[in-house]
Write a protein that binds this DNA or RNA. Structure first.
Length: 434
RNA sequence: GGAGGGAUGGCAGAGCGGACGAAUGCGCGGCUCUUGAAAAGCCGUGGGGCUCCGGUCCCCGUGGGUUCGAAUCCCACUCCCUCCGCCA
């Protein structure tokens, strides 16, 4: 959530910031009004409550002094004030709930540096990279044999079986086989080995409580996008960001321990309700996939550096895998609700002939930390301060898998995989039909 | 799934209807003593809302209830521990 005090003290700034995301200033006015009414109701309620406490104490005193009449009179009065307090409390609670509901669906303020724009078409391309670029090589032009989409070569090589996946779980649930399955496992091992120097490896639960989904901003607004297990009221996580953000929920961290850097590989589940019918072929968009995530809790001062560290680690992996990619600076209109600033990594896949998003690296400011109530105690003393949260995929495998299989395709139909995967796939790894 | 026990401040742990936001110990910070350190002694040490900055209210797992008054009594739920059953 955003800080309600900001709405109180500087509504114009909040309006201007949300305007950049296409949010009407009327919503900010509503927030301000609810906040004012709630505080007034709270003050009324507390004054009555204070009166009850004083009276109750006097009842005790009177009784101790054996003045039963006085005690009874005071108890009567206290009961009467208590009734009033109950009504005032109801009003105050009602306003608090209304305010909270609106606050939970209000998106984060975009960072000053985030480019303005209405949608994906306004994202800013920061840079492009391709193998050999630094040595002066031109941007690669795919050969004819690389123009085969991965769902075709994957099927004929016997490494990707979307039809049988659909038999088990419906469309868009991939089933990998043989070399295809091994490739996913190798990619995960490869990525985790690269992050082991600074990021603690976590294996979190992948079914979580409603509170856990709410902390990151995935609920209540995007309930339609998540799988929900009703009987036990648990949610299948759409990303490891969800359990990692809540891992320290409600805690006060020591500044000396920050930044806390975590990495996790998990299955990720997405209903993709809003994108029904789009990118349905092969691995372009799937309901279940494996992803290695980088995550950090940081002080506000550390956040920019950590953001860049996560981005450069994600880029580093794509480079090591030898895939051409570009980095986009997401415009205010395309930013996720909780994010203040996001960089997307897109890999070019020659068979599918498209740029595929394989990582999204975001800085959330204190928006998620406020929801999750994660703070740190400043080293120089003073009250606890909300941490900043950051995360990024490094990386999500289906689209990387697709790009590797398409770029790696050789004239004979086999797929040559990058040598960096040799420790897990054997020297000079190649996938052949079997 | 069944039976029993428990959840209190950074930690341990008392309190079981009236000045309890909470004893005590440990830890942590400051000071005294000391050439310095240790020891000893003294003082301090949770989070949050609102505020006319005087205060005031909330928080003893969570949510309800009883009462003039609840950390303390009642109900429900969650989690932890012990035992039994089941199980990868």
């Amino acid at each position: 959530m955003i800080d309600i005090r900001l709405v109180r003290d500087d509504p114009e700034r909040v309006k201007a910031a949300l305007w950049r995301r296409g949010i009407s200033s009327r919503d900010v006015d509503t927030l301000a009004i609810l906040d004012r009414e709630h505080r007034a109701a709270l003050a009324r309620r507390e004054a009555l409550r204070a009166r009850v406490k004083v009276l109750s104490r006097e009842v005790g005193q009177a009784r101790k002094h054996g003045d039963a009449d006085r005690a009874a009179r005071l108890a009567d009065e206290s009961r009467r004030v208590g009734e009033e307090e109950k009504a005032a409390a109801q009003e105050s609670d009602r306003l608090a709930a209304e305010l909270q509901t609106l606050l939970l669906t209000t998106p984060n303020l975009p960072a000053r540096e985030a480019p303005d724009g209405d949608g994906p078409e306004d994202n800013v391309e920061l840079r492009r990279w391709w193998p050999g670029k630094d040595g002066g090589a031109p941007e690669p032009v795919p050969a004819e044999h690389q123009r085969v989409p991965h769902w075709e070569s994957g099927l004929s090589l016997g490494i990707l079986d979307m039809a049988r996946g659909a038999r088990l779980a419906g469309s868009m649930f991939p089933l990998y086989r043989a070399g295809g399955a091994q490739l996913v496992r190798a990619l995960t091992s490869f990525a985790l080995s690269r992050h082991a120097d600074a990021y603690e490896e976590i294996r979190p639960p992948t079914l979580v409580l409603t509170d856990t989904m709410t902390s990151t901003g995935h609920l209540p607004k995007f309930a339609d996008e998540a799988y929900h297990i009703e009987r036990d009221d648990l949610w299948a996580i759409p990303t490891a960001e969800v359990p990692l953000t809540s891992m320290r929920r409600g805690e006060i961290l020591d500044e000396a321990d920050l930044p806390v850097r975590l990495t996790a590989v998990t299955q990720c589940f997405r209903r993709e309700a809003g994108a029904a019918g789009r990118d349905t072929r092969g691995l372009l968009r799937v309901h279940e996939f494996e992803k290695v995530e980088l995550f950090a809790y940081a002080t506000p001062a550390q956040a920019p550096d950590v953001h860049m560290d996560i981005l450069s680690r994600a880029e580093g992996l794509v480079r090591e895998l030898g895939l051409p990619y570009r980095v986009l600076d997401l415009c205010t209109g395309d930013l996720g609700t909780s994010a203040a600033r996001t960089f997307d990594l897109e890999v070019y896949a020659p068979g599918s002939d498209r740029w595929l998003e394989v990582s999204s690296v975001s800085w959330f400011g204190d928006y998620q930390a406020r929801r999750a109530n994660v703070r740190f105690r400043p080293a120089e003393g003073g009250p606890p301060v909300l941490v900043h949260t950051l995360n990024g995929s490094a990386l999500a495998w289906p689209r990387i898998w697709a790009a590797l299989v398409e770029w790696g395709r050789q004239p004979d139909g086999s797929v040559r995989l990058p040598d960096v995967l040799a420790p897990w796939l054997g020297p000079a790894p190649v996938i052949r039909s079997h």
